[in-house]
Amino acid sequence: MQSNVGLIIEEKAADIGNFMVGRLLPFRQKRAVGPFLFIDHMGPACLKEYQNLDVPPHPHIGLSTLTYLFDGAIFHRDSLGNSIEIKPGEVNWMTAGKGVVHSERTPEYLRGQDTYLHGFQIWIGLPKHLEQCEPSFFHIDKDAIPAWEDKGVAYKLIAGSIKDRESPVPVHSPMYFIEIKTKKPQTIDIGNRLFGEVGMYVLDGTVKIEGNDYGSKQLMIAKNASLCEFETNGQTTLYLFGGEPFQEERFMFWNFVNSDRSVLESAKENWKNQNLVAFPKIPDDDKEFVPLPEPKAIKSKR
């Protein structure tokens, strides 16, 4: 039988400023999985009392960002006027549309002490007709995220929808982001609930797919979502994500995404010139900003 695992991507280190992350997407051989364009695995990291997460104000266009923490806290501020602490299990969902600016920092009350940080930061593309929509922001409490158990397997639908469940996160296209946890070996067949393209990331433990073992820090891309069946080898935490891919190609430069390259060029000029109509300042965090990177030194600042 031909394997349903079409591609295995190893997590690779990436620098987002004063913090290292494990980058899963984009990858040279696979630029997106469904509408998912960019996935960073942050940590796990211990930040000493003299270290803090400080990603100054930086722009986005043409995408939604999803932040989901396992440990630690991040304080989010944006040019829409939102300011909120992100805690483990909550979902921060910001749709950039035609343009938004935000910053991500260690909360003030945690500065000066050892802290831990661990989680995902994800970019999800917008349908072509929404790429230039008005920006928006939603914060969803962890108790609002659908969670259930079936035959000893714990599920959580962080965002999107599957056959019989829907998350309150206001996504813009058919997609899903699912957490699966097991405490003992389990056989899981979830393919009849999925659609489009699907990727699997094993956070802890290992899984067996068609007789082969796969461990953490690996991203598997399935050839056929409807054939998504696997075994967990005891205590395992993994994530399934994907959905319907877009028909049009998405172009990326730094924090900008769009199906039209000319829109990226305009965004670059607007940020370089600090055009406050395109990219307003962030209330209470307007003293600094991340400069537009040179083409040969592009780093993601999310």
Results as ranks from 00 to 15, higher is better:
Arg77Phe: 06
Leu53Glu: 08
Asp40Trp: 03
Ala45Arg: 13
Arg77Ser: 12
Gly62Leu: 01
Leu69Ile: 11
Phe75Glu: 15
Leu47Tyr: 04
Ile84Thr: 08
Ser79Ala: 08
Ile86His: 10
Met42Pro: 01
Leu69Met: 11
Glu49Pro: 12
Asp71Pro: 03
Gly62Asp: 01
Met42Ile: 15
His41Gln: 11
Glu85Asp: 13
Gly34Lys: 07
Asn82Thr: 10
Leu69Ser: 04
Leu53Tyr: 08
Lys87Gly: 07
Leu69His: 06
Gly72Arg: 06
Ile61Thr: 13
Phe36Met: 09
Pro44Lys: 13
Ala73Pro: 07
Gln51Pro: 07
Asp71His: 06
Lys87Arg: 15
Leu66Trp: 04
Leu80Val: 02
Thr65Glu: 12
His58Met: 02
Phe36Val: 10
Pro57Gly: 00
Phe36Lys: 02
Leu37Lys: 02
Ala45Asp: 09
Pro56Cys: 03
Pro57Ser: 00
Tyr50Cys: 10
Thr67Met: 07
Met42Cys: 08
Leu63Met: 11
Lys48Phe: 14
Pro88Asp: 12
Tyr50Ser: 13
Ile74Val: 15
Gln51Met: 08
Pro88Ser: 09
Leu80Gly: 02
Leu37Asn: 07
Leu80Gln: 07
Cys46Val: 15
Ile84Leu: 08
Leu53Ser: 05
Phe75Asn: 14
Phe75Lys: 14
Glu49Ile: 11
Thr67Glu: 10
His60Ala: 06
Gln51Ser: 05
Ile84Met: 12
Pro57Lys: 00
